[in-house]
């Protein structure tokens, strides 16, 4: 079961890579980058998961030794938290690029854009 989860996450990464490499449409490429973003974030969170583990937030009255034995890994979560927001900044950047491409060439198709550039 555990290996199934990892393999499915890698399959998600593969779909993203395929979209970025093989698709011609700018919006499709943005979608592919988002899929890669999801897959990597998800993989990092899953690596830190502990069977039956709870959120790494100390409940009131919970002894710290028990907390340290049951909580999931907080380190990947801290890294992924910033990574998600960086993903939003990068999405805004890519959307701005797509808008500019559309304004100049009136199409999202990379082949068409290359042809129009001459």
């Amino acid at each position: 079961m555990g290996i199934t989860i990892y393999v499915l996450t890698f399959a998600l990464l593969l779909i993203g890579i395929y979209a970025v490499v093989a698709k011609k449409n700018v919006v499709k490429i943005i979608v592919g980058v988002l899929v890669i973003d999801y897959a990597v974030n998800l993989f990092l969170v899953l690596v830190g998961y502990r069977t039956g583990g709870g959120a790494p937030i100390l409940a009131e009255g919970q002894p710290v030794t028990e907390f340290a034995r049951t909580a999931v890994d907080p380190l990947p979560q801290a890294m992924v938290l910033t990574s998600i927001v960086i993903g939003l900044g990068i999405t805004a950047l890519m959307v701005a690029m797509a808008i500019r491409l559309w304004e100049n060439y009136r199409t999202f198709d990379m082949n068409e854009i290359r042809r129009l550039r001459g």
């Binding site: 919006v27 943005i30 979608v31 988002l34 974030n41 969170v45 899953l46 998961y49 502990r50 583990g53 709870g54 959120a55 790494p56 937030i57 909580a71 999931v72 979560q77 992924v80 938290l81 998600i84 927001v85 993903g87 939003l88 999405t91 805004a92 959307v95 797509a98 808008i99 559309w102």
Partner: peptide, 25 residues
């Protein structure tokens, strides 16, 4: 999998990314 911080952030990220991409499309 025990990451409520990420769940909150991812949910709102998704809404804003959807709005941005819908603006384009």
């Amino acid at each position: 999998v025990g990451a409520p911080d990420l769940a909150i952030t991812q949910l709102v990220f998704e809404v804003i990314a959807l709005v941005l991409l819908l603006c384009v499309v």
